[in-house]
């Protein structure tokens, strides 16, 4: 464990909690893409199947349970509890155009052709594109609530910190996982234009609005 991975995990945790609180406090999931949240729940489900079979550390197990619990709670709140506020008309990204190619790629490019490893690879590839429906929704609505931009910033920052973690681990441990690194680069690159808008607008007290 190194400081970049730890801060990355904490940034990820902050993002997940921020979103949960936003929906719970405002009792509304306006501006939130349910499709992205379903994909994140799928990412955690397929990645943490080894929760009971492969014990790494108390920290690792606790975080996995928190991620799984929060992601399902978020999906539940979007599609059931606060369903009336779900903005389905703007959440129109075709998720199957992501899940099917990612599923196929996981079969073709993986470390080991076993069910658990293919599902893990699927979760890594899916996570790299899971935010697309959310970013697409923001372009369709032309704006995002400030709390939602903080959520997205923390979420984008987490994988950027993981990229530094992988440089650190390669240099100090000789460890590298090309699948995770390539997918992590794609994932972080997808946030670049959001990062630019966040830093130039939201951090200057402006609302994030796109030229519709």
């Amino acid at each position: 464990m190194n400081v970049f991975r730890l801060t990355g995990d904490l940034s990820h945790l902050v993002a997940i909690i921020l979103l949960l609180l936003k929906i719970w406090k405002t009792r509304s999931c306006a501006g939130i893409s349910g499709k992205s949240q379903v994909m994140f729940a799928l990412v955690f489900t397929t990645r943490y199947l080894d929760l009971f079979t492969n014990f790494i550390s108390p920290y690792n197990s606790v975080m996995k349970v928190i991620y799984l619990g929060c992601s399902y709670a978020t999906v539940y709140m979007i599609y059931m509890k606060f369903k009336a506020s779900y903005d389905g008309n703007h959440d129109t990204f075709r998720a199957e155009f992501l899940i099917i190619p990612v599923g196929g790629l996981a079969f073709l490019v993986n470390h080991e052709f076993t069910p658990l490893e293919i599902l893990w690879t699927f979760s890594i590839y899916l996570e790299s594109v899971a935010i697309l429906p959310q970013l697409f929704m923001i372009t369709k609505t032309g704006e995002a609530e400030t709390i939602t931009t903080h959520y997205l910033f923390a979420l984008g920052l987490y994988r950027a910190l993981y990229l530094i973690n992988w440089i650190w681990r390669y240099y100090f441990e000789g460890f590298f996982d090309l699948i995770a690194i390539v997918a992590g680069c794609v994932q972080t690159i997808l946030y670049c234009d959001f990062f630019y808008l966040y830093i130039t607008k939201v951090l200057h007290g402006k609302k994030l609005s796109l030229p519709a």
Binding site: H12, R47, I56, N60, K64, W120, N165
Partner: peptide, 10 residues
């Protein structure tokens, strides 16, 4: 390269 005893990252 990838560690045999499974993935240790979240």
């Amino acid at each position: 390269q990838w560690n045999q005893q499974g993935h240790d990252e979240l």
